[in-house]
């Protein structure tokens, strides 16, 4: 269904020196730097597959999806979707794909949702009967009934996302690209959206490529994942396998009375790691995060050991995040 080989995308970025002098210099002479957003990416996806396309922010996920959907032309390499080269035959390709791009709406801002769908029906030339059937199904699964008469701009994020999703599937595309479809949504809406995607995949054998930062999305929808980092494919294969290998990674966050003098308790030494602070997090805050593998330690062991040495005000246990897994793979290899 989707064949990608040696796909590469380079951006030219103008380098600027800081300050006003830099800005003025840039007017006359600009230095450029080539940034490789996507480097030599190859994969092949069968009809009906649902694939998680994962990576940290800026890893090249969106750039890849834009090349697959015909918005961007690759610097080199080849893409074929359903036998069509998307960036050469953009309109032809567009007939067979659907897309949800994060929080950017695909709908028409000022008019009621139903009217938006009606316009899309004309744009995609969907036969009247198919359209009515799809709309009835979507209304049921995504619970759109009360939303159809409201203009898009008056919808909440969760409501809008449900409407977006229906819009992406309205013309029964063979391939759907979902770029962070559950970002910022509550659990109930997430669940509805996942159910809907699964249902469409089952009924229509829709091929789905999904990017997300939500492990729940992936676990429920995808058997296969592709992980990219800095534009390169790090892993392409079974989700189960990767989870067995890296998924045992747990993190416990401690909020201490006093961080000064914190040391990893002797009993845990070499078995836990202190997680470095994320950018922007105050260095002075009294929190410490410890990561460990649930294969050699239980969360209870770690908590107990820390509690016996330090006075702890609060603690939370975090699920393994895709970012942590990606980082693991990046540092240690698959």
């Amino acid at each position: 269904m989707i064949e990608v080989s040696g796909l590469t995308k380079e951006y030219k970025i103008a380098l600027r020196k800081p300050g006003l002098t830099g800005a003025i210099q840039a007017l006359f002479k600009r230095e450029h730097q080539i940034k490789q957003a996507v480097q030599d990416v190859s994969f092949s996806i069968r009809k009906g597959e649902m694939v998680g396309y994962l990576g940290a922010n800026g890893a090249g996920k969106s750039t890849t999806i834009k090349m697959l959907s015909g918005i961007l032309t690759p610097t080199s390499g080849k893409v074929e979707v359903n036998g069509i080269v998307p960036y050469q035959n953009r309109e032809q390709n567009a007939k067979g794909i659907g897309a949800v791009f994060g929080q950017r709406t695909q709908l028409f801002w000022d008019i009621p949702v139903r009217e938006s769908y009606d316009l899309l029906r004309h744009i995609y030339e969907v036969p009247e009967d198919d359209y009515r059937e799809s709309l009835a199904l979507f209304t049921e699964v995504l619970d759109l009934g009360p939303l159809l008469s409201i203009p898009v701009r008056q919808l909440s994020l969760g409501q809008k996302m449900r409407c977006e999703l229906a819009a992406a599937f309205l013309h029964r595309p063979a391939v759907v690209y979902l770029d962070e479809p559950t970002i910022g949504l509550d659990v109930a809406v997430k669940q509805k959206i996942r159910t809907f995607i699964k249902e469409m995949n089952k009924r229509e054998e829709t091929t789905v490529i999904l990017t997300t930062h939500d492990m729940g999305d992936i676990e429920e929808l995808c058997k296969r994942i592709i992980i990219i980092d800095e534009g390169k494919v790090l892993y392409d294969g079974d989700l189960q396998q990767i989870k067995e290998r890296f998924g045992q990674k747990r993190v416990v966050h401690f909020e201490l009375e006093n961080k000064a003098g914190f040391a990893v308790p002797a009993s845990l030494r070499d078995r836990v790691e202190i997680v470095p602070k994320a950018d922007g997090e105050a260095e002075a805050s009294n929190t410490v995060s410890l990561s460990f593998s649930s294969r050699d330690l239980s969360a209870a062991d770690v908590i107990q050991a820390v509690l016996s040495v330090h006075s702890v005000r609060d603690l939370t246990i975090a699920d393994p995040k895709i970012e942590t897994i990606v980082k693991e793979i990046y540092e240690r290899g698959v």
Binding site: S69, G70, I71, F101, R104, I123
Partner: peptide, 14 residues
């Protein structure tokens, strides 16, 4: 600027 042009490019019309 806000990236909405992409929306036009994934539609099967000019």
């Amino acid at each position: 600027r806000p990236g909405n042009f992409d929306r036009l490019l994934i539609r099967p019309i000019n």
